Amino acid sequence: MRYVAPAREVVDPVVFTHAPLKQWGEFADWLQGARWPSIDELNARWSLHAPERFVAQTRELLEDGLHYEERIATRGLIATREANWHDLFNAMIWLRYPQLKRALNRQQMAEIAQVGRRERSRPQCAQTHFDEAGVIVTVKDPGLLELWDRHDWYALFWRRRSAWVEGLVAVELFGHALLEHALTPGKLLVGKALVVMAGQEADSSEALACCARAIAEARWLRDPLELRPLPLSGIPGWHPGNAEEAFHRHAACYQPLREGRHYPAPLRLA
C-alpha cells in the first residue's frame, strides 16, 4: 500500500524529537512552522554558486518535454511540488548532500542516453532506490559488518548496541522517502545501504565524498542488489521501543537473510 503522509497540521510533534527528523534541525522552521516554505525560501538556502534551483512543478514547466533528470542536468531546474512533504524532503536532501545528488543525476543521464526516457535500466532502479530510501553507513569494526552480512540483527543492534553510541558504525540518511515515512510516530524504517569501511579517525564527510565519487564514476549503483537492507529502527534513538531487549527479538523490520543472497564488498577509505 502506498504511504500517505499526514497533513501538516496533524503531524505529531514527537516525531521531531527522534531520529531521523531530529537530525535535521537546520530546517526546523520548514518542518514545524505553521505554513509551508515557499519556493523562494527553498532557493534562499543554496550556496552562492550552486548551479541548481528549485522551481514550482506546474503544467507549463512540464510542457518543456524534458525528463525530470534532464531538466536538472540541462537547465539546473529541480521540479518541486509546493506544499508537499515528499518534495520538501527532497529539497532538504539537495541542500545538505548536493554532491551525491549531482552524482546520481549524472548517472541517470547516462542511462537515459542508453535506454531512452521510457525504459528503466537496472542501474536506474538502483539509483532510484537509493534516492528514495538510501543511507550511507560508515563501519569501523569489521565484526559489525560480519553480523550485518548474516542478518544477525539481535547481535548487531542489541549485543553490540554500544557500537552505535560510540561511533563504530554511523549512518547518514540520504533517502527523502525515509524522512517522509518518519512523520508517522513509531513507524518501522528500513534503509537501503551503501557501506564504507573506514579507520578509526575517518569522518562522515570522507565517506560521503567516497560514495559520491563511486556513483559518479559508475562504480556503484549498477544493480539494486548492491544495496543492503538496514533496519534503521534498531539504532539507538531511532525508535522508542528499541531500548528493550524484546524489540530486537521480534521486530517486524528484522527480516532473515534470503537463501543465496550475498552482498558486495564495501568501499574502503585509505
Rank of each mutant, 00 (worst) to 15 (best):
H248K: 05
R45L: 15
M92E: 06
Q57T: 15
E180D: 15
N43D: 10
H176E: 11
W46R: 07
P123A: 03
G76S: 11
L221P: 01
F247N: 04
W164H: 09
R118P: 01
P256R: 01
Q114A: 15
D141N: 09
T80K: 05
A209F: 07
A133S: 15
A103V: 06
E146V: 04
E244A: 13
A216F: 11
L21H: 06
L221F: 04
V135F: 00
S204V: 08
R59T: 14
G237C: 12
L194T: 00
L189D: 03
Y68R: 10
R53W: 04
P13R: 14
T128V: 15
L88N: 02
H262S: 08
F89Q: 01
L194I: 05
R122C: 06
V11Y: 12
G76K: 10
K22G: 04
L189F: 01
E172N: 12
L88F: 03
L144E: 00
H151Q: 02
V4N: 08
D87Y: 08
T17G: 12
L48M: 14
L77Q: 13
P224G: 08
R8P: 03
L225N: 09
F130V: 02
E166T: 08
H18K: 12
W164P: 05
D223V: 05
N242K: 05
H49Y: 14
P240D: 08
Y154H: 10
A5C: 08
R81C: 07
A91L: 06
S121E: 11
L66V: 10
W85V: 10
A133V: 02
L188W: 01
N105G: 12
R159E: 08
W158V: 04
L62S: 14
L147F: 02
A103H: 04
E82P: 10
E201V: 09
G191M: 05
E166G: 06
I72K: 08
F247P: 10
A103N: 07
K187S: 15
V171H: 01
A126R: 07
V11G: 13
I235L: 02
A155C: 07
R106K: 15
D12P: 04
N84C: 10
R222M: 13
L188M: 12
L144I: 01
L221Y: 03
G175I: 01
E26D: 14
W30H: 05
R268Y: 04
E180I: 09
S233T: 02
G25T: 11
A265D: 01
W85P: 00
R8I: 05
L225K: 12
H181F: 15
A83E: 14
